[in-house]
Simulated scan of single mutants.
Amino acid sequence: MSFAPLLAAPLPIQLHAWTAMAAFLLGLAVLARPKGTATHKAMGRIWVALMLVVAISAFWIHELNQFMGFSWIHLLSIVTCYTLFMAILHIRRGNVQAHRYNMLATFLGALVIAGLFTFLPGRIMHRVMFGG
């Protein structure tokens, strides 16, 4: 494993990848800890901020270029921003179940599933993990 391919990537890709990795690790911690505590709320706010950076930074990444410089990942970024907004709205209204659903959907969809695609051959994270 070598971070050299990531460190050589353009700044938007580096910002996107580092914040995604931080959000993944923090998200695991949030999921493992008791819910509703002051720590949970503080960690959740930081996680939402990281996820917004991940989603917004994707709009400056055009490597896949499937349609006029954009790709399916840009749609995922829009969905991520929406689900984060809905999660915050739901918890402020006291709907814990809907909040939990939106947060889990964001974690699984935007970090786990989308993250797995970054390890496909030809992608930067594939080179980070497996060389080449």
Rank of each mutant, 00 (worst) to 15 (best):
A23E: 06
P34L: 07
N102V: 10
I46W: 12
R33K: 02
I46R: 02
P34V: 04
G94F: 08
S77E: 04
I78M: 05
A58M: 08
T39W: 08
T39G: 07
T106Y: 06
L76R: 12
T83E: 11
R33P: 05
M68H: 11
W60H: 01
K35R: 10
E63L: 15
Q97F: 06
G36S: 03
L84P: 13
T80P: 10
Q66E: 14
F85T: 10
A32K: 09
V48F: 09
L75M: 13
H62K: 10
V30E: 11
K35A: 13
L64E: 13
H99G: 10
L28D: 07
K35I: 04
H40T: 03
I46L: 15
C81E: 09
A98F: 01
A87L: 03
W60Q: 08
L76W: 05
A55P: 07
V48N: 07
W60I: 04
W72P: 05
A105N: 14
A42L: 12
I46N: 00
A32R: 14
H40G: 04
F24I: 06
W72Q: 14
N95A: 13
I46Q: 01
A49M: 09
K41P: 06
N65C: 08
I56T: 11
Y101F: 15
A105S: 13
N102W: 09
I73P: 00
L50N: 02
K35M: 02
I91E: 00
M43I: 08
M43T: 03
L26V: 07
L89D: 12
N95Q: 12
H74D: 03
A98D: 01
S57A: 10
F59V: 03
K35N: 04
N95V: 06
A32F: 03
H40Q: 03
M103Q: 02
L52C: 15
I61H: 00
R100Q: 14
L50T: 00
G27L: 00
R93Y: 06
A58W: 07
S57C: 05
A55M: 05
V48Y: 04
G27N: 13
L28W: 14
L104T: 03
H62V: 02
G69L: 03
N65Y: 08
A29C: 07
A38N: 05
T83S: 09
E63Y: 09
R92H: 07
A49E: 02
S77Q: 00
P34G: 01
A42M: 13
V53A: 11
R92Y: 09
K41L: 09
A87Y: 01
L76T: 09
W72T: 15
N65F: 05
V53R: 11
G36E: 01
Q97S: 11
E63I: 12
K35G: 04
N65G: 05
E63H: 13
W60P: 02
V53E: 09
K35S: 05
N65A: 14
K41I: 12
I56P: 06
I78Q: 05
F67R: 14
A29I: 12
V96Y: 02
L52I: 12
